[in-house]
């Protein structure tokens, strides 16, 4: 019971301390996206595209979701944060978002087996968020 209480408090603190990306240099981040991240995403997708599930209407909101989907591994695709586009995204955010540092990620699901379709779908969602980001 005490453990759950601590976990709950930890989540509340984490939410309160979630980086909001409002101070990022969006121009530089989008340049990096254009120059490298986009090409890496396309290469991973290899022409396969999925329906877009999530959208965002501001650059801040988009970076928040990009960060979440890129660095929080989902069951079936534990390798996503280690992909080339993810590493370049991390570098761009660290360099052009003052105060940003990679937060502690939930690692309990990383042991799941890799399922190609899940990785492709997740990558497609991240591309859709980048497209929304650059258009917003």
């Amino acid at each position: 019971m005490v453990l759950f209480r601590y976990l709950f408090i930890l989540q509340v603190v984490r939410l309160a301390l979630t980086y909001n990306f409002s101070n990022c240099n969006f121009e530089m981040i989008l340049r990096i996206y254009h120059a490298t991240i986009f090409r890496d995403l396309l290469k991973d997708l290899n022409g396969i595209l999925f329906d877009q599930i999530e959208d965002c209407d501001s650059r801040t909101a988009c970076l928040l979701k990009i960060d979440h989907h890129t660095f929080n591994p989902v069951p079936g695709c534990p390798s996503l944060p280690e992909k080339a586009f993810a590493l370049k995204t991390k570098a761009a955010l660290i360099n052009y978002c003052p105060g940003y540092s990679e937060t502690e990620r939930n690692g309990t699901l990383e042991m799941t087996r890799e399922i190609r379709n899940i990785c492709l779908n997740q990558t497609s969602q991240i591309l859709g968020l980048w497209l929304s980001c650059i258009q917003s």
Binding site: F50, D51, V74, P75, G76, N121
Partner: peptide
């Protein structure tokens, strides 16, 4: 997870 991100064939 699959429900949150449907894996329809492209």
């Amino acid at each position: 997870v699959l429900g949150a991100i449907p894996t329809r064939t492209p």
